[in-house]
Write a protein that binds this DNA or RNA. Structure first.
Lengths: 202, 202
DNA sequence: TGTACATCAGTGAACGCGCGTTCACTGATGTAC
DNA sequence: TGTACATCAGTGAACGCGCGTTCACTGATGTAC
């Protein structure tokens, strides 16, 4: 309710779009769950009338999808950054996993919206099409990181299959952490144990 | 809307409670998500007026918690059954994992309600107290199964820590499957790869 | 054996609420003449 | 330099809807006398 908002200058109405997405992304995490984010709440957080949302989004779904895409971008960037420039590909993979989990813990609402579709109300078909499209760059990047490990002899098997196993392992921890399950060890320990067991070079 | 319901005979009003829980549990899965289950929908499915729910539950939350407890009971039973009477403790653990994943795939809405708190609207504190209480028998049972593996020399480490890793690994696959992610290999393969890598006896 | 009555398993109308969404509008600002 | 006007960034009142929940009630049925 920051009601001290000045209207955007003529020609830069598009700024509001970004403000709405940012506010919604913030609310998803502070409310803990995308399903608690309302159009009116987002508008109120930006300091604008509820109807102003319709200047930039066809409906609530489109706003939430925009948040999804925004968060997937940030997610992919953070993980790629964490793995960039690390010599040992298995160590790079481990760091990617840690970054993945840190994202989920820092932004639990967003994470659960991205991967468990909590709070996005599209019907399954549309939702899948759009969230898979949003997440694909991140998935491709994971497969590349795994392929590098296979090429280096650190892992054995089909890269895509291995990537899926790895994804499952990391998602399991990340989701439990995002939900707030206690008695989990630190992510570094969890991933170390898993990747250590998988390492073919020991 | 099976409106051909006859009222329960005098003295057995408690039957309605069980019917409501069963109908709600069914709806959680057919609607795909606990948040889509309404008190009116549950009552309608049983063939009773919405207000009849209040004869057995203080409010919607209490009904949903009852569903949670009911599904945790079924969950624990199915998994324990799957691991019972298997000689090799690591094989028993693998079968438990497969049963776990099968439950999640067969009852995705219930699974996500149990472990990701999707569709239960209690505040965090109460929800945690009650869902942890409901899930504890299952968790204890897992720790016992892991301890048996450690005692047999199949796994090395702290049983509780190992149990948490295993839970994360299985939950990751189960939740992705419950959400409907494509390109996952069969659960047997996923678990075989993981437990094979962890086996200290090979 | 008959009847009054308490009990029990529900019902039905109505409520207030917050939501997404619609529609006609306003008022500042850059631009054309 | 002044003014008419189109454009643009929003507003505000109002809607219908489905929800959880309340309250006073009904009508069948077992039981006491």
């Amino acid at each position: 309710m920051s009601s001290v908002r000045r209207r955007n200058p003529k020609g830069s109405g598009e700024q509001l779009r970004a403000e709405l997405v940012a506010a919604a992304a913030r609310l998803v995490d502070t409310l803990g769950d995308g399903s608690k984010v309302t159009l009116r709440g987002v508008a109120g957080a930006v300091g604008v009338a509820p109807t102003a949302v319709y200047l930039h989004f066809a409906d609530r779904d489109e706003l939430m999808i925009a948040v999804l895409e925004d968060r997937f971008d940030a997610f992919t960037r953070q993980i790629d950054d964490a793995g960039a420039g690390i010599g040992d590909p298995l160590e790079a993979l481990r760091r990617r996993g840690v970054a993945y989990i840190h994202f989920a813990m820092a932004q639990p609402g967003a994470y659960r919206m991205m991967f468990s579709h909590v709070g996005v109300e599209l019907d399954r078909e549309d939702l899948f099409k759009r969230s898979i499209a949003a997440g694909m760059p991140s998935y491709d990047s994971l497969v590349r990181a795994v392929t590098a490990c296979v090429d280096a002899g650190a892992l054995r098997g089909d890269p895509k299959g291995l990537a899926n196993v790895g994804w499952g392992v990391v998602h399991g921890y990340a989701d439990l952490a995002a939900v707030g399950v206690p008695f989990l060890q630190p992510p570094e320990e969890y991933l170390g144990a898993f990747l250590g067991a998988m390492d073919q070079r020991r």
